[in-house]
Amino acid sequence: MVEALVTVAALLVGIAFLLALYRFLRGPDAADRVVAFDTLTLISITGIVLIAFLDGRGIYLDVALVYALLSFLGVIAVARYLEQR
């Protein structure tokens, strides 16, 4: 039962990732891509924790945390750049 639910969730995360990826590739503006990138990051965090869970490795949680941190800084930096252009 639980395995089935985790599998369904993994599939849904994959679909969400592809949808956001479509927007990332399609654009059309730089801002659209950054929004898509931000969304991709958040979806990936769930993905990373999912891998941590499947592998039973708690250390991957730190990866997810640092990933969240870096993406936040990244989005802020790019937004600042867009603003000043």
Binding site: V8, A9, A10, L11, L12, V13, I15, A16, F17, L18, L19, A20, Y22, R23, V35, A36, T39, L42, I43, T46
Partner: peptide, 11 residues
């Protein structure tokens, strides 16, 4: 995960 799909659809 369903809400993540919703985010993707919204995008």
């Amino acid at each position: 995960a369903a809400f993540l799909v919703l985010a993707g659809l919204g995008l």
